[in-house]
Amino acid sequence: MSTTTTTTTSPSDEPTRIKTRFLILSDTHNASPYPPDTSNVGFRSPLPKADVLLHCGDLTMVGHLHEYQMALDMLASIDADLKLVIAGNHDISLDDEFYERRGRYMHRLREQDQSICREAREMWTGEEARRAGVTYLDEGTHTFTLKNGARLRVYASPYQPEFCDWAFPYFAHQDRFNPPHQATPNSVPICENPIPDFPAIDVVMTHGPPKGIRDETHRDEHVGCEHLLRAVRRCRPKLHCFGHIHEAWGATRVRWKDSEEEVGWEGYVEEAEWINVDEEDLVEDGMVSMNISQKGTRGLEIGKETLMVNASIMTHRYKPHQGPWIVDLDLDMNR
């Protein structure tokens, strides 16, 4: 577990829940926001200010050190009190095991150079990341105290089902997110850092999507993870954000089934409400904004609902035209 704390003093008359603004990005692949006067895309500068920035991986195209520097420079330009980042399958030098097997080929090197992995990790966990205000998250649970006085509990994982032999893979029959006694029936449990049960987590950050939720490819295939969906139903966070499948950009409001029967992934969800996005508003505002706090027009029913957001900035054809998401939600005050 990793814990980062920013000390703050809160008056005794503050509410027990604090509205907190999240800016969500994924799959930027070295892109920076377009200039402010660009009129036909949502991803343009300046990006909206937020309490917390969440970047769900694929910072680069193929994990070169100069690409990481470009990503850090882009993240440094964003105005957020806390910036949380995970890797994705394209950030290959942040996966030591994968890089040892495939790095030489993918980086077109004459000889294997594992020192790239050490340098990459140092970039994301050392002084350069601190200057950019970035906190890099390994797989597991992390707790933060925000400047607004709220407590944020995050589960993070860069792993996704094997996809064209890129980084951070596991096989589809392997359950990476549930402990053995809660694993998907007939799966092979490989979990080292299980997603906790409700109510331990506020936000789940993964690179890949869960099965059936914002995971549909341009070939009409659902490529998300059934075991992840099972774990998120058990966890019931307020927000689950991810990327990976560019063409599945968007948000879905999920209401969970209470039944504990082994019904398969299609039976975990009672209702999946597709969030409609006005493309003209997206381009004009440079974002999609949702307020699911209790002061919003329709507050989230905590423990019953989760907002699922695929925040891929890149389109299927690798054009950085898709807008970021702003989500306002309530967090418990840190005590």
Rank of each mutant, 00 (worst) to 15 (best):
S2A: 08
T3R: 12
S10Y: 00
S12H: 08
P15T: 03
T16G: 01
T16D: 14
R17W: 00
L23D: 02
L23M: 04
S26K: 00
H29N: 11
A31D: 10
P35R: 02
T38Q: 10
G42F: 02
L47W: 08
P48F: 09
P48N: 08
K49D: 14
L53E: 01
E67T: 12
E67D: 12
Q69T: 14
L72H: 09
A80V: 04
D81L: 00
A87L: 01
N89W: 03
H90M: 05
I92C: 07
E100T: 12
R101V: 15
R102G: 00
R102K: 15
G103N: 09
R110N: 13
I116H: 02
R118L: 12
E122G: 05
G126M: 09
A129D: 01
L137H: 01
H142K: 07
T143I: 14
T145P: 00
K147R: 15
N148Q: 08
R151W: 00
V154K: 09
P158N: 07
P158G: 08
Y159V: 04
C164H: 13
W166Y: 11
A167K: 03
P169Q: 03
Y170Q: 03
D175G: 08
R176Y: 11
R176K: 14
P179S: 06
P179I: 04
P180Q: 03
A183M: 02
N186R: 14
N186H: 13
P194D: 03
P196C: 08
P196D: 10
F198P: 02
K211L: 08
I213K: 05
H218Y: 07
H218E: 11
H222R: 15
L228D: 04
L228C: 09
A231D: 06
R234A: 15
R236T: 13
P237H: 07
H246I: 07
W249D: 06
V269S: 07
E270Y: 04
E270W: 02
E271P: 00
I275R: 11
V277M: 11
V283A: 05
S293Q: 05
Q294C: 13
Q294S: 15
G296N: 10
G296T: 10
L300F: 12
I302M: 07
L307W: 03
V309W: 04
N310P: 01
R317E: 15
D330T: 09
D332G: 13
R335A: 10
